[in-house]
Design a protein around this nucleic acid. Sequence first.
DNA 1: CGGGAACCCGAGTGAACAGGTAGGGAATGA
DNA 2: TCATTCCCTACCTGTTCACTCGGGTTCCCG
Lengths: 152, 152
Amino acid sequence: MRISARADYAVRAALRLAAAQDTGPLKAEAIADCEGISHKFLEGILGDMRRGGLVLSQRGGNGGYWLARPAETISLADVIRCVDGPLVSVRGVRPPELSYTGPAESLLTLWIALRASVRQVLDGVSLADVAAARLPAEISDLADDPDAWTNP
Amino acid sequence: MRISARADYAVRAALRLAAAQDTGPLKAEAIADCEGISHKFLEGILGDMRRGGLVLSQRGGNGGYWLARPAETISLADVIRCVDGPLVSVRGVRPPELSYTGPAESLLTLWIALRASVRQVLDGVSLADVAAARLPAEISDLADDPDAWTNP
DNA sequence: CGGGAACCCGAGTGAACAGGTAGGGAATGA
DNA sequence: TCATTCCCTACCTGTTCACTCGGGTTCCCG
C-alpha cells in the first residue's frame, strides 16, 4: 500500500494551485521549483489532471495552470484517482472483481471494508481543507492518537 | 494503493492454516493446489512467515506448516507486514520520515491519518475472525454501506 | 506580424519490482 | 535407506516508476 510519487506530487501541485486560486495561473516550472519536483515530470502529471478535468491551462506568455473548480469541491481522492487510477486494488484488480472460497470467503468483504475506510479519509478531505490546515474532525481525530505517529 | 499478490496469497494461506489449526500441519503444495497459487511461489511466502515468527514448520514425511500462535492473536496486519514490509508508505518511505512546507504543510498529518485508518481495519481483524466469517462490527459496518461495493 | 514564453506530446531509459521458475541441499520419519 | 517435504539461492520475463529529451503548438505582447 504505497502512495506513489505521482500521487504525492499531484496533491502538492494541486495545493499550490488551491493556494493561488485568486491570484491567477501558476506556471509548471514555478511549482516544480518550489516543491523540488522535476519540471518535465510534473508537466506530465498536470497533463493528466487537465485531461481529468481538474485543472485548466493556458499556453503562451503569461499562461499556466489553475483549478477548474473551487478547491472546496475537489477531494484528495479526486486528485489521486486522476493520476494513479483506482484508489485501492488487489493484485491489480478492483475488489468487486474478486472471488474467494473456503476459509477466505469473507476476505472480499474485508478488502471492501479496507477500501471504504481509505475512501472515508481521502474522499472526505478537500484541497481547501489541507491548504488551510483545517482537516475535518474525523480525520484529525485519527492523527491525534500518538500511536498513529509511531512506526510499526 | 495496491494489495500485492504476495499479501493476498499470504493471507489466504494463513487462513487455511487457521482453519486446520487442530488437525495438524498442512503441506505447502496442498495449500497451493486448493488456492490456485504457484507452489514454489507460495513456499517463498511461507518462508517469510516462518522467519517472521508467524508459522512453524517441519520437514520430512508428514511435515508441513502450522500457525505459531492461536489464530485469534494474529491480525491481518501481522501477516501483511511480514511479507510486504510497512503497511503504507509514501514514495517508498514511511510517513514520519517526510516533511512538507507551504500549502502542503498539513499533508503529513493527512498521510498519518490515512495510515491510522488502514491500521484500524487491518490490525483490528484476526485470522480467526475471517476464517469464521465473523468480522468485528466496526469492520462489517464499513462494508455494509452499499456504496462501498460500487466501483468509483 | 514576429518572437519568445509557456504548454503539449511522444518516445526513450535505467532501475526497481512483481510474479513466477529451476534446481538442488538438508532434515525427517517409515 | 529412501521417499517426502521443507529450505535456499539464483534466475528470468514483463511491467511499472520516475524521469529525461527533443521537439511541436498555441498564446500574448510589443
